[in-house]
């Protein structure tokens, strides 16, 4: 793989990335279209963005979405980190296979099944559907994604640091907070972001598990999309894309920087030795 890019490779990459980005790009461009018609370009305008802020239903849904996202991402990050530690550090324990199955299965489980089964659980235990059930469902599927992200960081890190701290008389509790947590923190942060994004993006599981008064933004978008393409929806989607993209890019730059710092520190430590 040393020969660098050939013409064929460049064509494949160009085609692939055009396929990935062109539809999103067109959606963003047409959100600034002055015309009501989707295919006719009527000049640049921000009127659809203005009308968004007068749409009470959408604003209300956005607020619900953000609240569910913040709550579920935070709980899912704690549970997912615990699950990752259990998988990587706890060795063998009875029921380990079942546990790892329960962590990986939700990653590929069709959403209709997850949604239906959770709804039936909430009905069976008599929990009223609404904000709480929505958050419980989101926590459950997103904690597994957090677990996978944190787990890969836990696997790759140098355990001798922890052992050194323990040998010097540090308690396991303190070792975790002083040594382990700072090292896996970038993974935990990206786990949180992933959980938050999954929560604010989810449609199907939310449809099943929600109740009156807890309509999320994707649910609102879905019901208007069924009636056809509307410039206003393009505007909402563009805002969501912008938020997510900025967040992901900032996070990746921050992670990269933290990584470089750490490498530098490690090199310095090695040279000092």
């Amino acid at each position: 793989m040393r020969k660098g890019l050939s013409g064929v490779n460049i064509v494949a990459l160009t085609f692939g990335f055009a396929f990935l980005y062109l539809p999103i790009l067109l959606l963003v461009i047409y959100s600034f279209n002055a015309s009501q018609l989707v295919t006719v370009w009527g000049g640049f305008s921000t009127r659809w963005y203005v009308s968004l802020f007068h749409n009470e239903q959408l604003l209300e849904a956005a607020w619900v979405t953000i609240r569910v996202g913040l709550l579920s991402a935070t709980v899912a990050t704690v549970l997912g980190t615990l699950a990752a530690i259990t998988l990587v550090r706890m060795g063998r324990f009875p029921g380990r296979t079942l546990f790892s199955g329960m962590v990986y299965a939700p990653l590929v489980m069709p959403e209709v099944i997850t949604g239906l089964s959770m709804l039936l659980l909430f009905v069976a235990i008599g929990l009223d559907r609404g904000f709480i059930t929505l958050a419980l469902a989101h926590i459950t599927f997103s904690m597994c994604f957090v677990a996978v992200v944190v787990q890969s960081r836990l696997i790759s890190f140098d355990r001798s640091l922890e052992e050194a701290a323990l040998d010097l008389g540090c308690t396991p509790f303190k070792t975790f907070f002083v040594i382990t947590l700072p090292i896996i923190l970038p993974a935990i942060v990206s786990g949180w972001m992933l959980a938050f994004t999954l929560s604010i993006d989810d449609l199907v599981i939310s449809q099943f598990t929600t109740g009156p008064g807890a309509t999320t933004l994707p649910m609102r978008i879905y019901s208007s999309v069924r009636l056809g393409v509307k410039p206003e929806i393009n505007a909402v989607c563009t805002i969501l894309i912008a938020i997510v993209t900025t967040g992901v890019i900032i996070a990746s730059i921050a992670t990269k920087r933290a990584e470089n710092e750490r490498m530098k520190a490690e090199r310095a430590a090695a040279a000092g030795r």
Binding site: I24, L27, T197, I200, D201, L203, C237, I241
Partner: peptide, 11 residues
């Protein structure tokens, strides 16, 4: 990271 719903809607 972009919502599946949005990406399908774009099409």
């Amino acid at each position: 990271w972009t919502s599946l719903l949005i990406r399908v809607y774009a099409w």
